[in-house]
Amino acid sequence: MESGCIGMVHSSTTETIKKHLLTKRGCVGVTEDTFLITFNEKIDFLPGQFVMIGVDSHGLTRKPFTIGKFKDNLAISVKTVGEGSKYIVETTTPLEVIGPLGKPFIPLSSNGVVVVAPSCIVEGIHLSEHFDISLHVCSKAPLNKDFISAVSNDKMEFHIGDDAYLQLLNKLKFEKYDWVFITGSKMMEKIGIKKLTGEGGKVVYVSYNEYMGCGIGACKSCAVMTKNGIKHVCSDGPIFRGDEICFQN
């Protein structure tokens, strides 16, 4: 859906959204409440895109997850915040999925860096590998040591605690990147945008999380206020330039 054209179905309506059944290949703990799940099946997708995962009777909506690759397997990262996400982590039943959805991430140059919370680590790993750039994982809680040893590489750094995140932003401000991709909590993204845009001189991209009903552009629930009016995470995003977003108090 193009911007400025509210609620219309475009000729892209004829494009089919595929349904998939995904069986788990593995599930590892990233932190106490966050998990990285890999699947046996493959989905053709581009960096930044997401899927909606059905949770059977464990929630009233499918749940959106950015997809990525981990050790060449299709993967998602899941923070357990409710019955739906708990079901996705624990079930042994194949997961019913629609996607890929949303617009892919096309950065302004290849000179960027990725900063993610553990809940978005799959997207971080995938972007880091896809664009061959550094990845900073910023976590409030300690990360699982086995997980760290399984994923570590020379492009990845870990930062634990709020102060470590702020120190990272101060450091990135003076490094010669054109852009910084930040995804995690709204607060994390908001602070990152504030610190790095403007005087920081960086373009910040955020992968936005907003509650979704349909994920396909029908219900208009995942609205985000931007300088160019209301946009929708599922059809205009999920990735937006930070300087476009109007944060509310």
Binding site: E210, Y211, M225, I230
Partner: peptide, 23 residues
């Protein structure tokens, strides 16, 4: 339509405040 957030669900109910967004 209305300013976000526009939807949330829990247990057996959900709330929406889309505000008739339409062209």
């Amino acid at each position: 339509g209305n300013v976000p957030p526009r939807m949330y669900a829990r247990d057996g109910y959900m709330i929406n405040r889309i505000g008739l967004e339409n062209p």
